[in-house]
Nucleic acid binder design. Structure first.
Lengths: 346, 346
DNA sequence: CACCACGATGACAGCGCTGTCATGGTTCGA
DNA sequence: TCGAACCATGACAGCGCTGTCATCGTGGTG
C-alpha cells in the first residue's frame, strides 16, 4: 500500500540508507557493483523518493518553478506539458507560476516564490527571461535558472539558456511572401518588451534587403501580442493609399486579428491580401483560411530547458542549445492579384 | 533571511509549538485569548507554514490536485488561475494535472497521483467529474474531492460539487435566436462523453418546444469539442436542401469551426447565417464577426470549488453551489434574411 | 615498510511540522 | 463535597530524507 522508503531499499540491497540516497542522486563515489545492487532493489520495489522529505531535509525541494507571463494560452499549455514531462521523468516536482514580468520587483517576487517553496530553480520563459536586470539579481541570490530566449546564436553570457532563432523563421516567412511576388508587405509588430518581436522584425527587414525591396516605415506598425492590436494595425495598413498586398503578423493572434480586419473590410484572404502569422498555435489552424505560420514546438523547447535546469542543479555542466522554428505554409498566403484587379472589394 | 518557523512563533507568543500549530490549523480547543496572542505573533513574524514539513509530518500534504482533460486551452488556464488564487490564499499547494478521462484505470491513475504526492484532495473538472464509476472508486479510496458538473440543480448525490446550469444558458441562446426570427436552427453537439453537451442539447430542444418549433433530426449533428468537427458539421448543415439560418455550436471552438465553414462557402455571417457559441473564450472575441456566446467564469467557478475542497479537508460541512452562465450577444447573430434573398452566395 | 591520501560506506542528527498521549486545571452533577 | 468528564495545553516521537563527519580498507610513495 504505502510506497517504499529509502530504508526498504537499503535493507533489500544490503547497504545503508545513505548509500541508496547516493545512488538515487547520482553521486560519484559509489562502487559500480554496489550501484547495480541498489538500482535493482529500487526497481523491484518501484521506489520513488518522497519529495516532501527530500525537500525538508535537503538544501532544496527537488522541485522547479515554471515562470511565465504571456497572454497566449496555447503557448503556456504547451510549455506546461513540456516541463511536466521532464519533471515526471526525473522525479522532480513542478510549480507553475504566472507572474508580472513588468513588475519592478520582479527578481524579489521570484526570489520569494523560490524561497517559500524552497524551489531548486526556475525555468524562465519569454518575456521574463529578457529582463536582464532581474536575471542579474536572481544570479546574485544564487537562484539557479535556465531561460528561453530569442537569439540566432548562443549568447554566451554566462547564463544557461535555450535559444530560439526567431529571426531566421521570420526571414523564411518573409522570403516566402516575396517569392509569391509580394513587394509591399506589412509587418505587425508584437510586444515591444519582447525581444522575440525585435528579432522577427529583423528577419523581416533582412529578407526585404536581400530581395532588394526597400523597407517602408508606414508598413511597420507597433502593437502588442493581442488580437485587437492585430485588428487595428491591419485596418491602418489596409486604409493606406497604397495598401500592402501581404501582412505578416508577429504571432498567430495578431495575424488572426489582421484576418478579421481584412474580412471585416470585405477583402478575401488570400486573394485580396495574404496574411501570415507566427507560432503555429491552434489559432492558425482554426481560422479560415488557416494561417501560414512558423512552427515553434514550445513543449519540446521547454522540456529541453527543464532538463538543462535539473542537470545544472545536479552540478553538471550543460551546453546551451538552439532551436529553429520551421515554415508552415497554409491557405492564407497566395500570389498577389494582378495590378489591374487589385483593391476590388466584395 | 530564512522564514520564521513554528518555534519562533511559539517563543514569541509564549506558548508551545503545538498550540501554534493548533491555531494555524483552526482547531477548536484553544482559548480565544491564547489564539489572539498567537495570531499576533504569526502576523508580526509573517509566519507561513512550511508545506514540506507539514506534508511530511501530517496525514496529507496540504496540497490539492487540479485534474483536467480538456482540449480548450483558455478554459484550462482560467481554471488554473482560479485554483491558484484560492490555494495561495489558504496556504495550500497546488498540483496541476492533465489526465486521460477515458482511461479505464482513471480512478487508479488518480489514486496514484494523490498518493505519490500525498495530496489532500482533488478538484475534478469536466469531463473527469462525470465518470461516475471513477468517482465511486475515489470515494472508496477515501480521497476527498469536489467536482464541477453540469446540472440545473444540486444533484444531492452525496458528493460535494459546484454545478453549472448549462441547460439554462443553452436555452437562453436558443431563445435569442428564435426571437431574432430563426426557425431552422442547427445544433452542433460536442463531446458525447461530456454531460454538459447533453445539457446544452436539452436547453436547445426545450427552447424550440417552448416556441412551438418542431425539432429536426437532420439539424442536430454530433461531434467533438473541436474546431474540425465544427467545420465539418456546419458544412453538412449548409449543404442541406433546406439549410438552417442559424447554427448553435456547443462551444466556441465548434462555433469558430462553423464560422470558418460558412466563410469558406462564401456565406456572410451574420447576414446569410447566424452563428452562436458557448463559453466566452477568447475565440469568441477574436473571430470576425465576434461570436454571440454564453459567458462561463471558469476561474470563479474553480476558485469556489477549490475553497469548498479545502473546507471539506478541514472537516467542515459544505453546501453545494450553483452558477449560471450568462448570455453575451455579439455580432455573429442577426435576423435571418427575408426568404426571397436567402441562399445568395458571394 | 610505515605513512598518508583517498575512495567507499555508514552512523547520526535534524529539517519543521503534526499525531498521540500525558498533564493540570476547571466544571458539573449526584 | 468528590470524582468524572472535559477543556486547554505541552512533551515527545517520528515522518523520509540529506548533510556532516567518522570509519575502514586500499594503493601509492619515499
Amino acid at each position: 500500500m504505502a510506497s517504499a522508503t529509502l530504508d526498504d531499499v537499503a535493507t533489500r540491497a544490503g547497504v545503508s540508507a545513505k548509500t541508496v540516497s547516493r545512488v538515487v542522486n547520482g553521486e560519484r563515489s559509489v562502487r559500480p557493483e554496489t550501484r547495480q545492487r541498489v538500482l535493482r532493489a529500487v526497481e523491484q520495489l518501484d521506489y520513488r523518493p518522497n519529495l516532501l522529505a527530500r525537500g525538508l531535509s535537503g538544501a532544496h525541494a527537488y522541485t522547479i518553478g515554471l515562470v511565465y507571463d504571456n497572454p497566449n494560452a496555447y503557448y503556456i499549455l504547451a510549455m506546461q506539458q513540456g516541463a511536466l514531462s521532464a519533471c515526471d521523468d526525473l522525479n522532480f516536482g513542478l510549480q507553475m507560476r504566472p507572474c508580472n514580468s513588468k513588475a519592478s520587483a520582479l527578481a524579489e517576487d521570484l526570489r520569494d516564490f523560490v524561497h517559500r517553496s524552497r524551489l531548486s530553480g526556475l525555468v524562465l520563459t519569454t518575456p521574463v527571461s529578457e529582463r536582464s536586470a532581474a536575471l542579474q539579481r536572481l544570479a546574485a541570490y544564487k537562484i539557479p535558472f535556465v531561460r528561453i530566449v530569442s537569439a540566432a546564436r548562443d549568447p554566451h553570457d554566462g547564463f544557461p539558456c535555450v535559444y530560439v532563432d526567431d529571426r531566421d523563421a521570420a526571414y523564411a516567412i518573409t522570403i516566402h511572401l516575396l517569392q509569391l511576388g509580394h513587394q509591399r508587405i506589412g509587418f505587425l509588430r508584437g510586444g515591444k518588451h519582447h525581444h522575440a518581436s525585435a528579432e522577427r522584425l529583423r528577419g523581416y527587414k533582412e529578407a526585404l534587403r536581400d530581395y532588394g525591396v526597400p523597407p517602408r516605415k508606414e508598413l511597420m506598425i507597433d502593437g502588442d501580442y493581442v488580437f485587437d492590436d492585430g485588428f487595428r494595425g491591419a485596418r491602418r495598413l489596409l486604409d493606406l493609399a497604397e495598401p500592402p498586398t501581404a501582412i505578416f503578423g508577429c504571432n498567430d493572434e495578431i495575424a488572426a486579428g489582421a484576418l478579421a480586419a481584412a474580412q471585416s473590410t470585405g477583402l478575401h484572404v488570400p486573394y485580396d491580401v495574404s496574411i501570415a502569422g507566427f507560432e503555429d498555435s491552434p489559432f492558425s489552424r482554426h481560422s479560415w483560411p488557416p494561417l501560414t505560420t512558423a512552427r515553434q514546438r514550445a513543449d519540446i523547447i521547454v522540456e529541453r530547458a527543464t532538463r538543462m535546469l535539473i542537470a545544472c542543479i545536479g552540478g553538471e555542466d550543460v551546453e546551451n542549445e538552439g532551436f529553429n522554428p520551421e515554415l508552415v505554409v497554409r491557405g492564407s498566403t497566395a500570389p498577389p492579384r494582378p495590378k489591374s484587379r487589385q483593391r476590388k472589394r466584395a
